[in-house]
Amino acid sequence: MPKGQQSQRDKGAAPVRKRLSPAARRAEIVQAAVDLFAETGFDGSTREVARRAGITQPLLYRYFPDKQSLIEAAYSRVFLETWDPAWDALLQDRSRPVVDRFQSFYEAYTEIVFQPVWLRLWYYALLRDAQVHAWYREVVQEQILKPMVRERRAELGQGDAFAVTVDELDVPWLLHGGLLNHGLRQLAGQAGNRGDSPDRPAVIRKALNLFLQQSAPDAG
């Protein structure tokens, strides 16, 4: 290495910033935010996000005018962009019994969400960020739980045209939240590795059996 370059490195000179398109730069910033928030919760600073992205804080604010917009982008990356549109068709495929559809869906869904970053962000949102958790709850209710209720009604011959009530969502929420807590327990028990286990399909099957029992006409 030339002597001048070695001298600059010894003095702690900042690395040359990578030339990126605006879209690629924005994606790098969002990924840095996701990684930080998964470690610290949503209290992580925009200064630290900028440092991890290899840019200045003023440049970060050219892409995200405030921290809330950065949190929204991180939320979208983790909780929305991981949704597979094929799951919508799977949940509503009435050529299959609901138990088979729901089993296949939750096996595919947990394969994606039982990841350290996803589970940690969900946990931090649950504990310390009511807004992010409210966004997540709304998505889950509309994309997963309400379709499950309607499809179960249809299988029982009850029709599916009327609105899903708050009471009808109680048991699906127990199913969904219980599975996420299972993933979180697995993650905690594996010292930060993937929150998965060989018995995941069996756990899903047990949870679904409880849901189906509770939603049967003579339940309760």
Rank of each mutant, 00 (worst) to 15 (best):
P15V: 02
Q57F: 07
Q6R: 06
R25H: 11
A154F: 13
R51L: 14
R128G: 15
G157M: 09
E138C: 06
P198M: 00
V16C: 08
A23K: 15
R62C: 05
W87K: 02
R17T: 03
V34K: 02
H176V: 05
A89N: 12
T165L: 03
L169T: 03
W173E: 06
L210F: 11
L36N: 02
N209E: 12
T56H: 11
F79E: 06
F211T: 04
R101H: 04
R200T: 10
E111K: 15
S45E: 00
V164T: 01
W135G: 06
Q115H: 13
D199C: 00
L121S: 05
Y136W: 12
W118T: 08
I29S: 00
E151G: 03
G54H: 05
G41Q: 01
I29G: 00
V98D: 03
A191E: 14
Q103F: 05
W173S: 01
W87S: 05
A216D: 04
A53T: 05
F114C: 01
P2A: 08
R128S: 15
I204T: 03
A86D: 12
M1C: 14
T110Q: 15
Q6K: 05
A32Q: 00
T40K: 14
Y75V: 07
W122K: 13
K18G: 03
A32M: 00
A13L: 13
R94G: 11
V164H: 01
Y106T: 06
S197V: 05
S95Q: 10
H176A: 07
A86L: 14
T165I: 02
G177P: 02
Q57W: 10
R52P: 00
W122V: 14
R77F: 08
L208G: 00
I71M: 12
A74G: 08
Y123D: 15
G177E: 10
F102I: 06
W83I: 07
P15C: 04
R194F: 11
A219R: 06
G220A: 07
V113H: 08
L208F: 01
